[in-house]
Design a protein around this nucleic acid. Structure first.
Length: 948
DNA sequence: CGGATCACG
DNA sequence: GACGTACGTGATCCGA
């Protein structure tokens, strides 16, 4: 007796949209979003695994929509016209859905001019006609029309997300009518997503009641004439044509030509290859293990370890349903191995490949990644599973630290690099680092391009920015280890000493070095296990995957490029500043009547206020006179010549010590360029910060300071190009607070401060424009009457009136501030348009100063942070966009919050400028559509100064 | 090592 | 009843 055939038809297109919204935004080791693909893969697995079970499939096919157009558009041109574009991180998953289907060796149906629903209907009827049972894997309400039995062959539906079978009773529960009348109900109620008109004002309730009463759509429409006068009657009569059109649109075509014969859809279970290749490519490791192990259904998926995915029920995406945190054995430093032979190194490389997720840490001879030499590398594959590979050690621990003992046995550096390179560059192995940008730059100098990567420091930042203070903003490894693991790692000081007694890492004895280095990798691996799963649960994946993680290699490359600085020019400036400073100092001493240290605010204060008798106040804590710029400017206004001279002296000494002298020091002897280091976790708002040297505060506001910018130059034959976002924060404020007047002004390309002046004062002249500008900035920073009064040199009462006028003219600003603060008080954090969180733990402080400080920062953070997100997105897209255009010689060198600086061949300027402008202007898209344009200003020249 | 000052967006 | 006023950074200097 032949078993009954059972055809499963998978509605792939509708499944992936649902999977996308139900599953966390996971990514594979390449950073490609694969959340929906993962859900789809596990679903196919489960279905294929049910082969030959009771009611399971004997035959199976996947049906997908080929395009958004179908024959229904010819009937009704507005059909599906209101469909929003799919989310940006779903788009790259569409082709992967097809890859997954092929990997399972399943037939795939995609036909032009009809929709997946029509193909499903056609196949279902064909199978039914042959006496086969059919299960439609979908929860689409349109398909419910097909459910039921005919000639002893039944069609049902399966909602895999709810693990629910839908048969006639379920359809009746939902629509109040049997399946064959569902089309009539749908025609009456319409569908806003598909833009099916239906009868205006008729919803599911009324529709099913009418059909149930009258037995069909036509009967219901005919009966309208005899109804007693009502809104409903009018509507039925008036929109009859709409309903009839809708009936045609919701009717499924059951007679489509069938491209694949149903007997060819026979299911063979779960294949080995090429499924294994697909699972491996996307890091679906637990499925891969299951495949290796034979079969078994993926009940407890653990893929993309450690971002745990739960495909059943609702857990996994909801805030309250946290996964238990992983627990590990206590750190055991004696478990680490010192790898000193090629044989052991090969062993560890194999172990890493099998582990697929490893932590990496490099030990170097210095802190500067551009100068440091590689001293060793540590790897971790699990808790207490870590090793240290010494490569440049001088001391094996046999002698004292002041006496070189014999050089220890080590794998030769070149051999080790050659052996490790394929592992560190392998797509199949995720490399985790704590501040991995550093390791990227060190290893890049040895010819290794590490990828794919994860970074525990940035994970921590994207989850917990603002939650704690301290060294690296609370995201340093020691702090993270304490906080998440309750473990104190060996400190660098304990290993290398401190101050004058500090030794380079290469002189640390191997046993000690192994304990320290391998522990760092071990701890990093453990931290990743803690932090990565939180990303999906706490909605941090968007910002991490889409903004910050892609930026790591980009910023690393900018740091390696560095920028050329004209040393001779700086030296000349230093000299000029020195002579001028000496002259000023002499004059100041004369004016003071005695010699003193001009650079000492304490001494200066005493000279100004005690000796010379100027009036001024003491500063709170230190009991010291304040002598800052505003005080000196006031004294100067009162005619004190010495104040002028001191201001001038300060400017010159500042420029000399901080810039002209320091920048010469910062020139890298190997590259002849200056390589700053950007911190991706430096600013709570998500901005980058720049150190060693800080290239984000090079003078520009005064002519004398600007001379320093003239020393930043391109290589021969090249120019520097500077591209700025103009007024980006004000534009974002106009968008986020929804201020029509400001949005309009930006749209028209108006002078925004002049427009503000007109709105506030009725006219814009030099004076009112300047005041309006101050007020505009005050808004971005969280306004107070005293602050504004101080800036505008007016009384607080007057300032308050201005603020009131501003809020009255732009009520959106006031409600933005109010709503932002409400949200922060409620949730504890603010959010940018791209979902970056900043926490404000002191927002509810009893201390007023503290609380108000938090409030001002909280008002500013979404604006400053959104601006940071936008330029980061532009940076991540910039080089691919330029390379696509064949511009391979353009180098992105610097970022200064709203400005990007490039170095490029003179001949490339014309081609590169529009691309740079477009990438920057469109950086918010498609994730966020701004209601204001983003204006870009571009300049080029033979120096950074000339490029402005 | 903290405070004061000042360079930038 | 007192608090102390614009957001975000980093480098340098002085002086305890």
């Amino acid at each position: 007796m032949a078993d009954k055939q059972h055809l499963y038809l998978v509605d792939g297109s509708s499944y992936i949209f649902r999977a996308y919204h139900r599953l966390p935004p996971l990514t594979d080791p390449d950073g490609t979003p694969v959340g929906a693909v993962y859900g789809y893969t596990t679903m196919l697995w489960k279905l294929a695994d049910d082969l030959d079970k009771a009611d399971g499939p004997t035959h199976l096919a996947v049906v997908l929509d080929k395009s958004s157009q179908s024959f229904r558009n010819e009937i009704y041109d507005q059909y599906k016209a209101n469909r929003p574009d799919p989310p940006e991180d779903l788009v790259p998953q569409f082709p992967l859905i097809r890859d997954a289907t092929r990997a399972f060796s399943l037939p795939m149906i995609e036909e032009e001019n009809v929709e997946a629903d029509d193909m499903i209907a056609s196949y279902a009827r064909e199978a039914q006609a042959r006496g086969w049972d059919v299960t439609i894997v979908s929860s689409d309400k349109d398909l419910m029309q097909l459910v039921g039995e005919k000639d002893g062959a039944k069609i049902d539906m399966l909602d895999t997300m709810k693990s629910a079978r839908i048969y006639v009773d379920e359809v009746k529960d939902k629509f109040g009518v049997p399946p064959e009348l569902v089309g009539d109900v749908l025609a009456l109620m319409g569908d806003s997503v598909d833009n099916i008109p239906g009868i205006f004002g008729v919803g599911p309730k009324t529709a099913s009641k009418l059909i149930d009463e009258h037995g069909s759509l036509t009967a219901a429409l005919d009966a309208a004439e005899d109804m007693k006068k009502s809104k409903l009657k009018e509507r039925l009569l008036e929109h009859r044509k709409d309903a009839e059109l809708s009936r045609v649109l919701v009717t499924l075509r059951e007679d489509c030509p069938l491209p694949i014969a149903i007997e060819d859809m026979k299911l063979d279970g779960i294949p080995g290859e090429p499924l294994a290749a697909f699972l491996e490519k996307h890091g679906f490791t637990s499925l891969l293990r299951r495949l290796d192990a034979g079969s078994g259904s993926p009940d407890r998926p653990n893929d993309l370890n450690p971002a745990k995915v739960e495909t059943k029920g609702d857990s996994g995406t909801s805030e309250g349903n946290r996964q238990p945190l992983p627990e590990f054995p206590a750190v055991d430093r004696s478990a680490y191995e010192t790898v000193q032979t090629m044989e052991r190194l090969e062993h560890w490389i194999a172990k890493c490949r099998a582990a697929r997720i490893i932590a990496v840490d490099t030990e170097t001879s210095a802190l500067d990644a551009m100068r440091a030499d590689l001293v060793g590398i540590s790897l971790a594959t699990g808790a207490n599973e870590a090793c240290y590979i010494p490569l440049g050690h001088l001391n094996d621990g046999g002698g004292g630290s002041d006496m070189f003992s014999e050089k220890p046995e080590q794998v030769p550096l070149d051999d080790a690099v050659a052996a490790l390179k394929p592992l560190l560059e392998s797509d199949a192995v995720l490399k985790i680092g704590q501040n991995i940008k550093y390791d990227l730059n060190v290893l890049a100098r040895y010819g290794i391009a590490v990828a794919p990567i994860d970074d525990t420091m940035i994970l921590s930042f994207d989850l917990d920015a603002g939650r704690s203070e301290g060294g690296v903003g609370g995201h340093g490894m020691d702090e993270l280890s304490e906080r998440h693991l309750g473990h104190t790692p060996l400190s660098f000081k304990e290993v290398c000493g401190t101050g004058r007694k500090q030794i380079p890492f290469g002189e640390v004895p191997l046993d000690k070095a192994t304990e320290y280095a391998a522990e760092d990798a071990d701890v990093t691996w453990r931290l990743h296990q803690h932090l990565k799963p939180r990303l999906a649960i706490e909605h941090g994946a968007r910002i991490y995957e889409r903004v910050d993680r892609p930026l790591i290699p980009v910023v690393a490359q900018m740091e390696r490029h560095g920028i050329k600085v004209d040393r001779a020019r700086l030296a000349k400036l230093s000299e000029e500043f020195a002579t001028e400073t000496a002259k000023l100092e002499k004059t100041i001493h004369e004016l003071a009547g005695k010699e003193f240290t001009v650079g000492s605010p304490k001494q200066l204060g005493e000279v100004l206020f005690d000796d010379l008798g100027h009036k001024g106040g003491k500063k709170g804590k230190s009991g010291q006179y304040s002598t800052d710029q505003s005080v000196l400017e006031r004294l100067s206004g009162d005619g004190a010549e010495i104040a002028d001279k001191v201001l001038e002296w300060r400017q010159l000494t500042k420029l000399k010590s901080t810039y002209t002298d320091a920048l010469q020091q910062a020139i890298n002897p190997d590259t002849g360029r200056v390589h700053t280091s950007y911190s991706l976790v430096g600013a709570q708002t998500g901005r980058l910060s720049s150190t060693d040297p800080n290239l984000q505060n090079i003078p520009i506001r005064t002519p004398i300071g600007r001379q320093i910018r003239e020393a930043f130059v391109p290589e021969n034959g090249n120019v520097l190009l500077a591209a700025d976002y103009s007024q980006i924060e004000l534009r974002l404020a106009a968008h986020m607070a929804d201020v029509p007047e400001l949005k309009e002004a930006f749209a028209e390309g108006e002078d925004i401060h002049a427009r503000t002046a007109r709105e506030m004062y009725g006219e814009a002249d030099r004076d009112t424009r300047a005041r309006a500008k101050t007020i505009n900035f005050a808004i971005l920073y969280g306004i107070s009457r005293w602050g504004l009064a101080g800036r505008l040199k007016i009384e607080p009462d007057e300032a308050q009136e201005l603020i009131d006028t501003y809020f009255k003219r732009f009520p959106g600003i006031q409600s933005y501030i109010h709503e932002t603060l409400e949200t922060v008080r409620e949730r504890g954090y603010s959010e940018t348009l791209f979902g970056r969180k900043t926490w404000f733990p002191r927002i509810g402080s009893k201390n007023q100063a503290e609380r108000q400080g938090s409030e001002r920062a909280a008002i500013n953070a979404p604006i400053q942070g959104t601006s940071a997100d936008i330029i980061k997105r532009a940076m991540a897209r910039m080089m691919p966009a330029l390379e696509d255009a064949g511009l391979e010689h353009v180098r992105m060198l610097l970022q200064v919050h709203d400005e990007l600086v490039f170095e490029l061949p003179e001949g490339d300027v014309e081609a590169a400028s529009p691309i740079i402008e477009r990438v920057m202007a469109e950086a918010a898209l498609p994730a966020v559509e701004l209601s204001v344009p983003l204006g870009i200003e571009i300049g080029t020249g033979a120096s950074w100064d000339a490029a402005h």
